[in-house]
Computed example of a mutant assay.
Amino acid sequence: MKPLMMLVILTLLAGCATHQSPTGRGQTLLFSAQEMDQMGAASFEEMKKQQPLSKNRQVNQYVACVAERITAVLPGQQPNWEVVVFESEQVNAFALPGGHIGVYTGLLKVANNQDQLATVIGHEVAHVLANHSNEQVSRAQMTGVGMQLANVALDAGGVSNKDLYMSALGLGAQVGFILPYGREQESEADIMGVELMARAGFDPSQSILLWQNMAKAGGSQGPELLSTHPSHDHRIADLQQMQAKVLPLYQNTQSSVKNSCE
């Protein structure tokens, strides 16, 4: 049975679908868009049950306005995005496949204006556009298969202390493989997100101020090597380099932007 198990696992790994991200990075995506939309919808419904929703009408309208301007410039056929504000001190936001955006009220204390809020929402929506959720779920799936493969190999080789080896493999997988959104994905979402906000008529130079605010709010960071996010300095430097490209996009939209969200 062990040679057969090995063959099945190797065949599954060989059949992975390889794609390119919007910036040309290689991705392995095992799930269809429909499957990811179903996962996104189920996850969002669960979050709405578990976390309190903001009842502040003004805050909800403000966040929805910014989000709607971002989603209006997305390429291709896009769903009607559902936007929910969660009452929480977390300085965070997220977007899920299938057209779902969540913003925590704590973020509004750091994102000081509509342009800075658009920076975060554009970044989170970019994660969805770039199939980062699919990539992460696929990596987690492959990690599980990889652990099975390692288990079979250790059994076949008569290796003692198998639990120790498996624990070590699991630690390596957690640090470098299946943590949500690695640094490459975060950098990719920064690049795509700042272009989205500029096309939606939000000032991309505010993205730099937003991450400076984040740096002040976040305090000291651990080493970038063990972080799923780029360091604040690295992120700000990348955004500064992007300004020459995205400022003209922002300037070209000014005549067509009719209403401020604030």
Results as ranks from 00 to 15, higher is better:
14 A>I: 06
76 G>C: 02
244 A>V: 07
218 G>T: 08
179 L>W: 09
64 A>E: 15
222 G>Q: 09
217 A>E: 14
155 D>P: 09
9 I>C: 12
224 E>D: 00
10 L>P: 12
33 A>T: 12
60 N>Q: 12
171 L>E: 14
21 S>Y: 03
262 E>N: 15
260 S>T: 15
225 L>G: 00
14 A>S: 15
64 A>P: 00
58 Q>A: 14
97 P>W: 02
235 R>G: 09
69 R>Y: 03
217 A>C: 02
18 T>M: 12
17 A>I: 13
119 T>E: 03
185 Q>G: 01
120 V>M: 03
82 E>D: 14
234 H>G: 03
146 G>C: 06
209 L>T: 15
237 A>M: 05
74 L>V: 08
179 L>Y: 11
95 A>C: 08
156 A>G: 08
121 I>A: 04
4 L>M: 07
235 R>C: 10
105 T>G: 09
256 S>Q: 14
46 E>I: 06
87 E>G: 02
255 S>V: 04
104 Y>F: 11
220 S>K: 15
36 M>K: 01
242 M>N: 08
233 D>K: 14
99 G>Q: 04
170 G>Q: 14
18 T>I: 14
129 L>V: 13
3 P>T: 00
93 A>Q: 03
65 C>V: 08
169 L>T: 02
50 Q>D: 15
73 V>I: 14
147 M>L: 13
22 P>W: 00
224 E>C: 00
20 Q>G: 04
45 E>P: 06
52 P>Y: 08
90 Q>Y: 04
110 V>Q: 10
131 N>M: 11
128 V>P: 12
94 F>V: 01
117 L>V: 07
211 W>Y: 13
169 L>H: 00
92 N>Q: 09
250 Y>A: 05
79 P>S: 01
224 E>W: 00
42 A>W: 02
192 M>Q: 14
162 K>S: 11
220 S>H: 11
148 Q>Y: 03
249 L>Q: 13
17 A>K: 14
62 Y>R: 08
239 L>Y: 04
149 L>Y: 09
202 F>R: 04
137 V>R: 02
210 L>W: 07
49 K>R: 15
141 Q>P: 00
128 V>W: 05
133 S>E: 10
1 M>S: 13
208 I>N: 07
222 G>K: 09
177 F>M: 15
80 N>D: 15
141 Q>C: 11
230 P>Q: 02
158 G>D: 09
211 W>M: 04
67 A>W: 06
109 K>G: 13
155 D>K: 12
202 F>T: 04
193 G>N: 10
82 E>M: 00
111 A>W: 04
77 Q>W: 00
10 L>H: 11
34 Q>H: 11
61 Q>Y: 03
128 V>R: 03
245 K>Y: 01
8 V>L: 15
44 F>R: 01
162 K>M: 14
222 G>F: 07
